[in-house]
Simulated assay, not measured.
Amino acid sequence: MEHAGYTTLSRQSGLAREMQIVANNIANAATTGYRAEGLIFSEYVKPVDRGASLSMGQGNVHSTSFAQGTLTQTNAPFDLAIEGDGFFLIETPQGERLTRSGAFSPSAEGDLVTYDGFRVLDAGGGPIFVPPSGNIAVSSDGTLSADGNPLGQIGVVRPLDPINMVREDGVMFRADDGFEPAETARVLQGFVENSNVNPITQLARMIEVQRAYELGQSFLETEDERVRTALKSLMT
């Protein structure tokens, strides 16, 4: 295969990955706390004969948008949203994880948990007990109280290096570089944060990627026909 074919194939593989990401964003446009994902393309330049160079594009680096999603009021006492930079601290079998999805509920054991059953942690990394009855209130700093009696403070943290956080599912992240308390974040009770995906923008991008992919496919077919024709001419 000639240089043009390799260059186009590298571009096609990146466009295929971006199409998957865009489709996943659209599928999660209504997922509470979902962060939109993107793909960063990079250029690889290699010197070739006679001082020329070959440029190939690759799309391998994933990026995440941490823009604030819109807040929807639910008035449910265990629905929480974060206004500003910060994440809720969650306990999973694989370790502590971060999320913006605050649709919580009390478990049968009395712990505050996510919809997947993972325990929500307090500022010190311990589980949060919720009494079976009483007027539950959560202040802007995350302090949870029942009938006016403080029970604990919900852990709201910010990663030390958000760019290198690893997405483990749609709404959960792993911060290998650690995290610290999010001093400026505010917790809102009775609200949930919607996905920050803009469906119209994502649909427009899907159309652009699809057209770019079809153009590349057409070029490969034309290039293949050109090479076949040249070989036939040489053999006759």
Rank of each mutant, 00 (worst) to 15 (best):
N28D: 07
N28E: 08
A29I: 05
A29L: 02
A29R: 04
A30P: 10
A30R: 11
A30C: 07
T31K: 02
T32M: 11
T32Q: 14
T32I: 15
G33R: 00
G33Q: 04
G33T: 04
Y34T: 00
Y34V: 01
Y34K: 00
R35M: 11
R35T: 08
A36S: 06
A36K: 02
A36H: 03
E37T: 05
E37R: 12
E37F: 02
G38T: 15
G38D: 15
G38K: 09
G38V: 13
L39I: 09
L39Y: 02
I40A: 12
I40Y: 05
I40R: 07
F41A: 05
S42V: 09
S42N: 12
S42T: 14
E43V: 14
E43S: 15
Y44Q: 12
Y44R: 14
Y44K: 14
V45A: 12
V45H: 09
K46Y: 10
K46S: 11
K46G: 07
P47A: 05
P47N: 10
V48F: 09
D49A: 12
D49V: 10
D49R: 13
D49W: 06
R50K: 13
R50S: 12
R50H: 11
R50D: 13
G51C: 07
G51L: 07
G51K: 10
A52V: 08
S53D: 13
S53R: 13
S53Y: 14
L54D: 10
S55Q: 04
M56A: 15
M56Q: 13
G57A: 15
Q58E: 09
Q58C: 06
G59P: 03
N60Y: 06
N60V: 05
N60A: 08
V61I: 12
V61F: 11
V61H: 13
V61R: 09
V61M: 12
H62A: 14
H62W: 04
H62S: 13
S63W: 09
T64S: 07
T64I: 15
T64H: 12
S65G: 10
S65F: 12
S65Y: 14
S65E: 15
F66E: 07
F66H: 11
F66Q: 02
A67H: 10
A67Y: 07
A67P: 01
Q68I: 02
G69Y: 04
G69T: 01
G69D: 00
G69H: 03
G69E: 02
T70C: 03
T70L: 08
T70P: 01
L71R: 02
L71H: 08
T72R: 05
T72G: 04
T72K: 08
T72H: 08
T72Q: 13
T74F: 06
T74S: 11
T74A: 07
N75E: 09
A76L: 10
A76W: 01
A76F: 04
P77H: 04
P77T: 11
F78S: 00
F78Q: 01
D79K: 03
L80G: 03
L80T: 03
L80S: 02
L80C: 06
A81Y: 06
A81F: 08
A81G: 07
I82Q: 01
I82K: 00
I82Y: 05
I82G: 00
E83T: 00
E83N: 00
E83S: 08
E83C: 00
E83P: 01
G84V: 01
G84E: 05
